[in-house]
């Protein structure tokens, strides 16, 4: 049960390398669906490399928090990712925390991101921080209830344990509790990763922006950390959806390289399917007004409550 350094290293590399690609694919597919050519899927890597090489400008009003926030955001998202099984159960750091620690770590990153937005004394940053903290707070009960639903079925908050229990023989793709909880989590995924209809990741300097507003004063290598951290967070949440609800192909840690390769293929297929779903939602919907977003999120909460109720009806 002790953490295996090799597994940690491999999963860290997987998360680091895969996260920008997923963001790039979503951007590319979205452009295709809107009859544009769009950036190549690997453009995000090039962007990150460029940000890393560039000089950095730091606001004269900012304090040490501004420089501290990117590190916290990046490492906390990465650590959260190490608690989710990607290719095999158990996840490398299952011992250090499960679903609750994952939610906590994402909250830690968000806390510092919001402080980083407030620090340079610009009105935009404060606006982004205020909106981001509000929306994530409203999304939190739905997320927690959806996690509670699967955790109750598994009798554990350990994500590896949850995956293993859904993997067992009694697992059905269309178990109503899981379908409803999945739907709730999907809405939360849209909100947490700043996707349309909650936020528009393609806007800069518009009064509707949420996540981008907080990054406005970041440049150079700090911006790279922030962007990379955000894409890792997106990957972590997508992995959570993919492996907890559809544990198809997930290997066990003792499996040989062949099983792991098969598991990698299944994992990528699931991620691409989720990315396609996100792209579809983003192109077919308009951005909601800020004060309509709580309606969407409370719908997610209702879905999660129904999921919970159905664990009790169909067990």
């Amino acid at each position: 049960m002790n953490p295996d350094p090799l597994a940690i290293l491999l999963q860290t590399l997987l998360l680091l390398l895969l996260a920008p690609l997923v963001s790039g694919i979503i951007k590319n597919w979205k452009a295709k669906l809107q009859n544009r050519r769009g950036p190549r899927p690997w453009q995000v890597y090039l962007d990150l490399a460029k940000f890393l090489r560039k000089d950095m400008v730091i606001s004269e009003h900012a304090s040490w928090i501004f420089s501290f926030a990117p590190y916290v955001l990046f490492t906390s998202a990465l650590l959260a990712g190490l608690m989710v099984p990607t290719l095999a159960t158990p996840a490398p750091l299952s011992l250090f925390g499960g679903a609750l620690a994952l939610i906590g770590l994402l909250a830690l990153g968000r806390f510092f991101l919001a402080l980083g937005g407030l620090d340079p004394a610009s009105a935009f940053g404060g606006m982004g921080s205020s909106r981001d903290m509000t929306l994530s707070a409203i999304a939190e009960p739905a997320l927690m209830l959806a996690i509670f639903t699967v955790a109750i079925t598994a009798g554990s908050t350990d994500l590896s344990q949850i995956c293993r229990s859904t993997q067992s023989a009694t697992w059905r793709l269309l178990n109503p509790a899981h379908v409803l909880a999945f739907a709730a989590m999907f809405v939360v995924l849209l909100a947490e990763t700043g996707r349309i209809p909650v936020d528009n990741p393609a806007t800069h300097l518009e009064l509707t922006m949420v996540h981008e507003a907080m990054l406005l004063e970041y440049s150079g290598r700090f911006l790279a950390l922030m962007e990379w951290g955000a894409s890792i967070k997106q990957l972590v949440l997508m992995t959570l959806l993919a492996n907890v609800f559809v544990p198809v192909g997930l290997a066990v840690s003792e499996a040989g390289p062949g099983a792991l390769a098969l598991s990698l293929l299944a994992y990528l297929a699931k991620l691409l399917a989720l990315a396609a779903a996100v792209v579809l939602v983003e192109t077919t919907n308009a951005k909601l007004r800020l004060f309509r977003v709580p309606d969407l999120l409370s719908a997610a909460f209702v879905l999660a409550t129904l999921a919970l109720l159905s664990t009790f009806l169909f067990q």
């Binding site: 304090s63 004394a121 994530s136 939190e140 009960p141 209830l145 509670f148």
Partner: peptide, 26 residues
Amino acid sequence: GAMLALTSALAAACFVKAFGITFLAQ
């Protein structure tokens, strides 16, 4: 439990405000 999650997320929002407005910026 869900309400507790809402509470701690709102508490985080509140302390971003308390710390950010009191100690950060100009």
